[in-house]
Amino acid sequence: MNPANYLYLSALLFTIGAAGVLIRRNAIVVFMCVELMLNACNLAFVTFSRLHGNLDGQVIAFFTMVVAAAEVVVGLAIIVSIFRSRHSASVDDANLMKL
């Protein structure tokens, strides 16, 4: 199969993820969209790795997964604690950090 198709898919997923982050209010959904963007990148890395015939991209994909897992731990913890104090998972409600 033409490797470009993987890249098209990766761009499509990244765009969906980015649009989700910008548009959706629910913190969980925003979070999942971030994951979607990360995985779109992973797909691009792996594709390029395949194209160039070396393992660099695949190694970076593993790193990305590890970072994403760590990020999920921290992010979910923040979301849960915000939900506990505000009874809402909307990112627009957590807007205290402003002048």
């Binding site: 982050v21 910008l22 925003v30 990112v91 205290l96 402003k98 002048l99």
Partner: peptide
């Protein structure tokens, strides 16, 4: 310039993007 900092995560995300 202060008005740009409105506390909405999504608007920060737009500027990052």
């Amino acid at each position: 310039l202060r008005k740009l900092q409105n506390g909405y995560v999504r608007s920060y995300a737009v500027s990052m993007l």
